[in-house]
Each structure stands twice: as structure tokens, then as C-alpha cells.
Design a protein around this nucleic acid. Structure first.
Lengths: 152, 152
DNA sequence: TTCGCTGCAAACCGTTTGCAGCATT
DNA sequence: AATGCTGCAAACGGTTTGCAGCGAA
């Protein structure tokens, strides 16, 4: 993908996120615009403080509470996802990509996405057999690079 | 199972938990004995405050910090597990039963255990293919009783 | 007798919230 | 002009921790 294509995709993403807000009848303030473009650009899973840091370079003075408030709003609009991994502050990602679960490298904190149709099906089966419907689920694999003994 | 058998199993469990502590070279104080017997008796997934409440009826005056400290100790001995379900304080269970995952009834908060050999295998496969070993995982199904519409 | 453990109160840390003023609509 | 949003600072809530004294070994 060329840099120009990347730019376009990112702008599209920002536009979609902005529309999501406008559709919900909320004001698109400078703070929100800043955060939206930061989120659109993010292909990792940053935490609130990191998002605040990035947003500040776009709109100096934006407050952490506004970041938190906006993240909560965006989450309830369904345009971003919040992940609470073990022993760490919440991490966020835009909801553009299809459903997937996460592997967390316990050494580096790196997050790797993966999807398994088969696991999803098995989960649904199990719930159904026990008389339940799945509202949502959480599957996290805490992993270590192969051959990286913990006795390093 | 008769009541007598239940008593015996519970006492066994307390004994094993106590031994785990003694083996680790830590003192078995009244507070710890109380918490151990509470844990041995618990077949649900209580949170720290609830465990404290139960322990108090056995040893009035035991402090919440001691409960937290002991839970952390027991966790690192591997004799209990700590679960951090979504939007709730940590819940604990003794590590006597075999590995399993959890379904959480989003309406009642009830925790249902389940195990799936097939899901476990798939997880390991996925991690391996990506060049990782699983250290541990977390699979939680947030569910609702079938036919219980959210528009209730 | 030793020194690990306890209770208390205060700190912690990520996150939320009350409020007065500001800026988007 | 109206009112939804912002920044600030303070509160929150679950959990951890420093400290002086207590009690298990």
C-alpha cells in the first residue's frame, strides 16, 4: 500500500468516526476531532494516557478527562472497543476491523490480533447447550515467544 | 453425597491449603486458618469483601487488608485463582478443581464453569503457528439465559 | 526471643465526576 | 443565545502499603 493510499484510508476512517458522532447528535468539538484523528491513525492498542499524549501534539492543552469522556462516548456508540488486559490500564482500538481476539506478549506487552471461526462456533455451542446466549466474550492468550525461557 | 462426606472433603481441602502454606514456610496464623477454611468451604466465586465477611464470622476483627494480603500470598503459591471479570472486583476460587473457563450471567452475576478440550487445543495451535507459547489464557463468555430478551 | 504477620490509616492509580466557564450549534 | 462540552480539581473504589505492636514458632 502506498503512502497516499494509507492517507486516504486514514482520512476515510476519521470521516466515518466523525459521522458516527454527528449522527449521534453530539457536538464535534476540536478536542473530539483531535482524538478521532488520533484513533483513526492508531493501528496499535494504546491506553488512555498514550492517546492523550498523541492528542496533545494535535491540540495542546486537551485534558485527560476529556479523553476519558470521549473514549467512553465513542465506546457506547460502538465505534471503538475497550480492552481490559490483565494488570494493565484499559487499551483502545477503533472498531473498523472485523471481530478478533487478542494475544498479549507477556514480555513486551505487544498485542497480536487473531481470529478463529472454529473457536467462536465452539463457544456458541457450549453456551447454547447450557441454556444461554452469548452477549459477548473475551478470549485472551498471554504468550511468550517460542524458545524464550522464563529463566532468561 | 452425604453431609458427612461433604464435611470430610471440606476438611481435607482445608488441610491441603494449610499444608501448602506450611510448606512455603509461612506462619499459619488464626487469620490465615480462618480464611483457609472459608476458602475450602466456598464452592462459588466470592470477592475479597465477601470473603472478609465470611472470615469475620469465624474470627471477628480480622481486617480486610489481611484478607487481601493472604489472598495474594495464596495466589502466588498457586493454591487459589484470582479472576478479574468485566467491571467487577476480583473474584477468587480455590485451585483444587481441574482447569476450566467461565461463563458470567450478565443479569445475575452468576458464574458457571465449563471446560472445552477442543478450544484449548485450538488456542495452543493458533499460538504455536504464530510463533508463541501460551503462558496462560482467559476465556470468559458473558451470557444471558436463553429467551431472556434485553427488552425485558 | 525472634521476626513474620496484623490492624489501622493513608497512599495508590486508573478512572469518573461536580462545577463554573467556554465554544459549538 | 442556548446548552453541550471542557478543564480543573476533587472524589471514587478496589487494592496495596508503611508502621508500630502483636503473637506464632
Amino acid at each position: 500500500m502506498t503512502q497516499k493510499e494509507a492517507m486516504t484510508r486514514q482520512d476515510d476512517r476519521t470521516r466515518r468516526l466523525t459521522e458516527a458522532l454527528r449522527d449521534a447528535g453530539v457536538r464535534v468539538t476540536r478536542q473530539r476531532a483531535a482524538l478521532l484523528s488520533v484513533l483513526a491513525r492508531a493501528d496499535d492498542h494504546p491506553e488512555a494516557v498514550e492517546l492523550h499524549r498523541r492528542a496533545e501534539s494535535e491540540l495542546p492543552g486537551i485534558s485527560l478527562s476529556t479523553v476519558y469522556r470521549t473514549l467512553s462516548a465513542l465506546e457506547s456508540q460502538g465505534v471503538i472497543h475497550r480492552h481490559q488486559f490483565e494488570g494493565a490500564p484499559a487499551r483502545f482500538e477503533h472498531a473498523e476491523s472485523a471481530h478478533h481476539d487478542h494475544m498479549i506478549d507477556v514480555d513486551s506487552g505487544e498485542v497480536i490480533e487473531f481470529a478463529s471461526e472454529r473457536i467462536e462456533k465452539l463457544q456458541a455451542e457450549i453456551a447454547r447447550e447450557l441454556g444461554y446466549d452469548i452477549v459477548h466474550h473475551r478470549l485472551e492468550l498471554y504468550v511468550r515467544r517460542k524458545g524464550t525461557g522464563s529463566d532468561g
